[in-house]
Design a binder for these strands. Structure first.
Lengths: 151, 151
DNA sequence: TAAAAACCCCGTAGCCACTTCAGGGTCAAG
DNA sequence: CTTGACCCTGAAGTGGCTACGGGGTTTTTA
């Protein structure tokens, strides 16, 4: 019942590129597997589970460092759960921040797109004009009394 | 009226790290400025505008390649505006996709956080259990008849 | 006037999480 | 006995910077 997988099989089973598996091993996230006589890696159930855990955390967009930390916590079963909470809390805050900034971003891009009535030439492209104009309002005090394009 | 800025002044005026300015020059996004006798870079109004344009596009999370493409379009004023639309459209689609995936992510993390009643020890941490269990449902068929941790 | 602080130069390496590449070895099928 | 599928290693590339090391120059201050 205990599967003895080669790297390619593990890769397919867990939906991971096999280079990624070797990479996780190299950075110490996945324990080194045993080897066949020819040097090929052999994986067992433990590896399957660990890799799935890593991929699930990555799907939650946690960094490899976070995942490493979670593994460390897990090896000290009597430790305080609070650090795990904290890690999730911090991560959640990061995600939330990126989320709101992406929402702003989308709004801006939608506005930008709306300035274009296509079929015209670049010279009168609303988008390009808008981008240039917006840049000028962005922070630089720009008196355009200079031919643009070169110092 | 035409400013002749040194790199540090340009950096402050446009709110960009000066290494970033040199980087943009290196990758061909900002034209090479003239030099003082001592080799110091001197920037003019054109550079101020271009840098502001770049930063504004970056704030919209466009890649440097996209920005480069926009610049190319801008140098062919009689070309078709449609390619610009297309670029924005594609970018918007990318942003929207990331946005929805981040929303899912946040929902999952909120659920995850809710599984924890803190103050307990790691062994019974709801979050960790949830992460492991979720990973098992994720794609790998896992009969846990093996001691986890090693092959 | 000299020393200290602030600015500039260049090239290289580091960050993250991979991916790709070059150059090989191993093994079963046809 | 060769083809093709699989595996190995180490190094380099990706994007968009950031940091560092080791210098030179300019400006300010004591």
């Amino acid at each position: 019942m205990n599967p003895r997988l080669r790297i390619g099989e593990l890769a397919i089973q867990c939906g991971v590129a096999l280079e990624t598996i070797r990479y996780y091993e190299k950075v110490g996230l996945l324990p080194e597997p045993m080897r066949e006589a020819n040097g090929y890696r052999v994986y067992g159930q433990g590896h399957v589970e660990q890799l799935a855990f890593i991929r699930h955390c990555r799907a939650l967009d946690m960094s490899l460092a976070d995942i490493h930390a979670l593994r460390q916590f897990a090896t000290q079963p009597s430790g305080d759960c609070g650090e795990i909470d904290q890690l999730i809390e911090t991560h959640l805050a990061r995600v939330h921040e990126r989320l709101t900034s992406l929402q702003n971003l989308e709004r801006q891009l939608l506005t930008l797109r709306a300035t274009c009535a296509s079929g015209r030439c670049v010279q009168e492209c609303g988008i390009l004009h808008e981008l240039v104009a917006a840049a000028q309002g962005d922070g630089c005090v720009c008196h355009t009394d200079d031919t643009p394009g070169n110092n």
